[in-house]
C-alpha cells in the first residue's frame, strides 16, 4: 500500500484553507434537501469505525469520521471549506462504512450529497480532484449519451489504459473478430451483448436526461470547468485541459 501511496502524496489542504470564501448560503439546509443526506446522517458519535474500515482512509489522508462530524456541526463555513476541498473526492463509494456504523450513518451517502452540491454551486473546480469531474463527464457521461452504456470497447483506449494489459491491446485491435464469438449483435441492432442500442431507446434516455436535470448537470460541469480553465491560463475547457485533469497529480510534479 505504502509503495503506491507515495505516488499520490498527502493532502491536508482542507484543514488549512481559510473559510469563508462565499459563506452566504445555508449549506446545511441545502444538503438536507437531498434524501441521501437525510438517510446518511443520523447522529454521529465520532467513534471512527467508518474510518477504520474505509479503503480511501488507508490510501489518502482522508477521514470519513471528520466529514460526518463537520456536516453534523452545521457550521456553514466549515461545510463550505469541505465543498471546496480535495477531501470529498477521495471516497471510493464502496459503502463499506454503511453496514459497520453503530449509529446507522452512511458516510458514503453524505459524500454523494456533498459532491452533488459542490458541483451545483461550482465549488468543485476549486480542487484538483474536483476538476476531474469534467473528465468523468466527457468519458462515462458521453458514453451514456452516445451508446446508452457507461463503457464500450472502442472507447477504452489501450494507451490511456496501460493497466488493461497485453490481452486488452489484442482484444481492442481485433474486436470485430473476437466479440462476435460471444454475441450475435456486436455493434448491430438486436438483443445480445454490446449491441447498438436502437435510436428510439437512445432518444428516450436523452429525454430522461433533459427532464430530470441530468443534461443540465452535465452543462453545469462544462460551464464551471470552462471558466476555471480560462482562469488557469487554458483557452477554455479544451481537450488539453480535460486530459490534464485526467492524468495529472500536482503531488507528483
Amino acid at each position: 500500500m505504502r509503495h503506491f501511496h507515495n505516488k499520490i502524496g498527502k493532502n491536508t489542504e482542507y484543514f488549512f484553507k481559510k473559510p469563508p470564501y462565499l459563506c452566504t448560503m445555508d449549506y446545511f439546509k441545502m444538503l438536507m434537501e437531498d434524501v441521501r443526506m437525510r438517510e446518511g446522517l443520523k447522529a454521529c458519535m465520532n467513534c471512527g469505525v467508518c474510518t477504520a474500515i474505509c479503503p480511501a482512509a488507508e490510501f489518502y489522508d482522508y477521514d470519513p469520521r471528520q466529514i460526518v462530524e463537520t456536516v453534523q456541526s452545521r457550521d456553514n463555513s466549515r461545510i463550505e471549506a469541505l465543498l471546496c476541498s480535495e477531501t470529498i473526492w477521495y471516497c471510493g463509494q464502496c459503502m463499506s462504512c454503511r453496514p459497520r456504523c453503530p449509529r446507522g450513518n452512511t458516510p458514503g451517502y453524505i459524500i454523494q450529497s456533498l459532491r452533488y452540491l459542490s458541483q451545483k454551486l461550482g465549488l468543485f473546480v476549486q480542487s484538483e480532484k474536483g476538476r476531474q469531474q469534467l473528465a468523468l463527464k466527457r468519458t462515462i457521461g458521453e458514453n451514456i449519451m452516445h451508446y446508452g452504456y457507461c463503457l464500450v470497447p472502442q472507447e477504452i483506449s489501450p494507451d490511456l489504459h496501460p493497466e488493461q494489459g497485453t490481452v486488452w491491446r489484442w482484444i481492442h485491435s481485433h474486436d470485430r473478430d473476437i466479440y462476435p464469438l460471444f454475441t450475435p449483435s456486436y455493434r448491430k441492432a438486436g438483443a445480445g451483448a454490446l449491441r447498438k442500442l436502437d435510436e428510439g431507446s437512445l432518444a428516450e434516455i436523452h429525454r430522461i436526461f433533459e427532464l430530470s436535470g441530468g443534461k443540465e448537470f452535465f452543462d453545469l460541469i462544462e460551464e464551471y470547468s470552462e471558466r476555471k480553465a480560462r482562469e488557469m491560463g487554458y483557452e477554455g475547457a479544451t481537450h488539453e485541459y480535460m486530459l490534464d485533469t485526467f492524468t495529472k497529480n500536482s503531488s507528483e510534479q
Binding site: L136, I140, Y149, L151, D198, S212
Partner: peptide
C-alpha cells in the same frame, strides 16, 4: 433489446444526479 445501462457507474462517479 430495448434496455440500457442503469447509468450506475455515472451515478457513483457523481456525474449522473439521483433524479436522473
Amino acid at each position: 433489446p430495448l434496455h440500457s445501462s442503469c447509468t450506475g457507474i455515472g451515478y457513483h462517479s457523481d456525474i449522473v444526479p439521483l433524479d436522473t
